Deep mutational scan, measured.
Amino acid sequence: TDVTFHVNGRNLHLKGADEELLRRIEELIRRGADIEELEKAVKEWEK
């Protein structure tokens, strides 16, 4: 799945995201995470 999140005026584009990653990103956004936290979560998922 390709999806782009718009967070605090910045874009986080995910290519090939699975349901697990999407749920994790949505949860972080609900908690008020900043873009750096979201990018870190994506990097951890990519490993």
Score class of each variant (00 low, 15 high):
Leu12His: 01
Glu20Thr: 12
Asp34Ser: 07
Lys47Pro: 12
Glu19Gln: 13
Glu39Lys: 07
Ile35Asp: 03
Glu44Arg: 07
Ala33Pro: 01
Arg10Thr: 15
Ala17Arg: 02
Lys47Tyr: 11
Lys15His: 11
Ala41Leu: 10
Lys47Glu: 13
Thr1Asp: 08
Lys43Pro: 02
Leu21Thr: 09
Asp2Lys: 04
Val3Glu: 03
Glu46Asp: 12
His6Ile: 14
Leu12Ser: 00
Leu12Asn: 00
Glu37Cys: 08
Leu38Gly: 00
Thr1His: 14
Gly9Gln: 01
Asp18Ala: 10
His13Val: 15
Val7Met: 03
Glu36Lys: 06
Glu37Ile: 11
Leu21Arg: 01
Phe5Cys: 06
Val42Trp: 03
Asp2His: 05
Thr4Ser: 07
Ile29Trp: 07
Ile25Gln: 00
Glu27Val: 10
Arg23Asn: 10
Glu19Asn: 13
Phe5Gln: 01
Glu39Asn: 06
Glu20Phe: 13
Lys40Glu: 15
His13Gly: 01
Asn11Pro: 15
Glu19Ile: 12
Glu44Pro: 01
Ile29Lys: 01
Glu37Ser: 07
Asn11Tyr: 15
Asn11Glu: 15
Ala33Arg: 06
Lys15Pro: 04
Asp34His: 08
Leu28Pro: 00
Arg31Leu: 13
Thr1Ala: 12
Thr4Phe: 06
Phe5Met: 04
Leu21Ile: 14
Ala41Pro: 00
His13Gln: 07
Trp45Ala: 06
Arg24Cys: 09
Arg23Thr: 12
Leu12Ile: 09
Asp34Gln: 08
Lys43Asp: 11
Lys40Ser: 12
Val7Ala: 03
Ala17Lys: 03
Thr4Glu: 06
Arg10Lys: 15
Asp2Ile: 08
Asn11Thr: 15
Leu12Met: 04
His13Tyr: 12
Gly32Arg: 03
Phe5Trp: 03
Glu36Gln: 07
Leu28Gly: 05
Lys43Ser: 14
Asn11Lys: 14
Leu38Met: 08
Val3Ser: 03
Leu22Ala: 03
Asn11Ile: 15
Leu12Cys: 02
His6Trp: 08
Ile35Arg: 01
Glu44Thr: 08
Leu22Glu: 01
Glu19Lys: 14
Trp45Leu: 04
Arg30Ile: 12
Gly16Phe: 07
Ile29Glu: 00
Gly32Pro: 01
Lys43Ala: 12
Glu20Lys: 14
Leu28Lys: 06
Asp34Met: 09
Arg24Tyr: 14
Trp45Asn: 06
Gly32Cys: 06
His13Cys: 11
Arg31Gln: 15
Glu36Trp: 08
Val7His: 05
Trp45Asp: 04
Val42Ile: 10
Lys43Asn: 12
Ile25Asp: 00
Ala33Tyr: 13
Asn8Glu: 04
Gly16Val: 06
Ile35Met: 13
Val42Pro: 00
Asn11Met: 14
Lys15Cys: 03
Ala41His: 10
Glu20Ala: 14
Asn11Val: 15
Leu21Pro: 00
Thr4Ala: 04
Leu22Trp: 02
Leu22Ser: 02
Glu27Thr: 11
Trp45Gln: 05
Lys43Leu: 12
Asp34Ile: 08
Ile29Met: 06
Val7Phe: 05
Arg31Glu: 13
Trp45Thr: 04
Val42Asn: 02
Glu19Pro: 14
Glu19Ser: 11
His13Leu: 09
Asp2Met: 05
Arg24Ile: 12
Leu12Thr: 00
His6Val: 15
Glu19Cys: 05
Glu19His: 12
Asp34Asn: 09
His13Pro: 01
Arg10Asn: 15
His6Tyr: 09
Glu36His: 09
Ile29Phe: 07
Leu22Asn: 01
Ile35Ala: 02
Arg24Phe: 13
Asp18Leu: 02
Lys40His: 13
Val7Gly: 02
Glu36Asp: 12
Asp34Arg: 07
Gly9Phe: 04
Thr1Pro: 07
Val7Trp: 04
Gly9Ile: 03
Arg30Met: 12
Lys40Met: 13
Leu28Arg: 04
Thr1Cys: 06
Thr1Asn: 10
Leu28Tyr: 07
Leu21Gly: 01
Leu12Ala: 00
Trp45Ser: 07
Glu46Gln: 11
Leu14Trp: 01
Ala33Val: 08
Glu27Trp: 12
Ala41Gln: 09
Leu21Phe: 08
Ile35Cys: 01
Thr1Met: 14
Asn8Cys: 06
Gly9Leu: 03
Ala17Phe: 06
Leu14Asn: 00
Gly9Asn: 05
Val42Phe: 03
Gly32Asn: 06
Ala41Asp: 04
Asp18Phe: 02
Ile29Arg: 01
Arg10Leu: 14
Gly32His: 04
Leu38Pro: 00
His6Gln: 12
Asn8Pro: 01
Glu27Lys: 10
Leu38Ala: 03
Glu46Phe: 09
Arg23Val: 09
Glu26Ala: 10
Glu37Lys: 07
His6Lys: 08
Glu36Leu: 07
Lys15Asn: 06
Gly9Trp: 03
Ala33Met: 10
Glu20Ile: 11
Trp45Arg: 04
Arg31Cys: 13
Ile35Pro: 01
Val7Leu: 05
Glu44Trp: 08
Glu27Met: 12
Arg10Met: 15
Thr4Cys: 13
His13Phe: 08
Ile25Pro: 00
Leu14Ala: 01
Leu38Tyr: 02
Arg10Gln: 15
Arg23Ser: 09
Val42Tyr: 04
His6Asp: 11
Ile35Tyr: 15
Glu27Asn: 11
Lys40Trp: 11
Arg31Trp: 13
Glu26Gly: 10
Leu38Cys: 13
Glu46His: 11
Ala17Leu: 05
Glu27Leu: 13
Ala17Cys: 07
Asp34Lys: 08
His13Ile: 14
Ala17His: 05
Asn8Lys: 05
Leu14Asp: 00
Glu26Met: 13
Arg23Gln: 10
Val42Met: 06
Lys47Gln: 12
Glu26Cys: 09
Glu20Gln: 13
Ala33Ser: 09
Gly9Thr: 02
His6Leu: 11
Asp18Trp: 02
Glu20His: 12
Glu39Phe: 08
His6Ser: 09
Arg31Ser: 12
Ile29Val: 06
Lys47Val: 12
Glu20Ser: 12
Glu39Thr: 08
Leu38Val: 05
Lys43Gln: 14
Gly32Lys: 05
Asp18Gly: 13
Ala33His: 10
Glu20Met: 13
Arg31Val: 09
Ile25Tyr: 00
Ile35Leu: 08
Lys40Val: 13
Leu12Arg: 00
Trp45Cys: 02
Arg24Met: 13
Gly16Asn: 14
Val7Thr: 03
Glu26His: 11
Arg30Asn: 09
Glu39Pro: 00
Leu14Lys: 00
Glu36Tyr: 08
Asp2Thr: 08
Lys43Tyr: 13
Gly9Ala: 01
Val7Ile: 10
Glu46Tyr: 14
Arg31Asp: 10
Lys15Leu: 06
Phe5Leu: 10
Arg10His: 15
Lys40Tyr: 13
Ala33Phe: 12
Thr4Ile: 14
Leu21Asn: 01
Leu22Met: 07
Val3Asn: 03
Thr4Arg: 03
Gly9Tyr: 02
